[in-house]
Amino acid sequence: MSTASPVISAVEALGPTAFEKAIAEGSQYDSPAWAVEFALMASAAAGQSASAATSSPLTPREKEVAALVAEGMSNRQIASALDLSPRTVDRHIEHILAKLGFRSRARVAAWWVANHHPSGTIP
Rank of each mutant, 00 (worst) to 15 (best):
E94R: 13
I96W: 03
A24I: 10
A53G: 09
E12N: 13
I122D: 14
E62M: 04
E37T: 09
E71I: 01
N75D: 11
E64R: 15
L84V: 01
L40H: 06
F38D: 15
T59F: 02
E37D: 12
V7I: 09
E94D: 12
H116F: 03
R107I: 05
A10W: 01
S49V: 06
V69C: 04
W34G: 07
I23M: 15
P118T: 09
S27Q: 15
A13C: 00
Q28C: 12
A45V: 01
T121G: 12
A35F: 01
H92T: 00
E25D: 15
G15I: 07
V113E: 12
G15E: 07
I96R: 10
V89P: 02
A98T: 04
R107L: 12
W111M: 01
D30P: 01
W112I: 09
M73H: 13
P123L: 04
E64H: 10
P86R: 04
M73C: 13
M41P: 03
P32T: 00
A10P: 09
R107Y: 11
T3K: 06
S27V: 05
Y29A: 08
T54I: 09
A4P: 00
R103S: 14
L40C: 05
I96N: 11
E20F: 15
G72H: 11
Y29G: 07
N75F: 07
D30N: 06
S74C: 04
K21P: 12
A35W: 02
S43K: 12
S85E: 06
A110T: 11
I122L: 14
L100Y: 02
E20M: 14
S43E: 08
S56I: 07
S119G: 06
P6W: 00
A109R: 09
A10Q: 05
A98W: 08
A50N: 10
H116M: 13
P118R: 11
I23G: 13
A98K: 13
S74K: 03
A4Q: 08
S104Q: 11
R91I: 08
G26P: 08
L97C: 06
H116P: 03
E20Q: 14
L68H: 14
V113R: 11
A70L: 10
S85V: 01
N75L: 09
L100C: 08
P32Y: 02
H117I: 12
V89E: 00
A45T: 00
S51W: 12
A22G: 11
A24E: 15
R103K: 09
A46G: 15
K21I: 13
A18M: 11
P57C: 00
E94Y: 05
T17F: 14
R107Q: 15
Q77D: 03
T3P: 04
A52P: 00
L68F: 13
T3F: 10
I93D: 10
N115A: 15
L84H: 06
L58W: 05
E62A: 01
A35D: 05
G101V: 02
W111K: 01
T59P: 02
A39Q: 10
M41R: 14
E12R: 15
V113W: 06
M1N: 03
D30Q: 05
R91V: 10
P6G: 00
P16Y: 05
E64D: 14
S119R: 13
P16T: 12
S56D: 04
F19N: 10
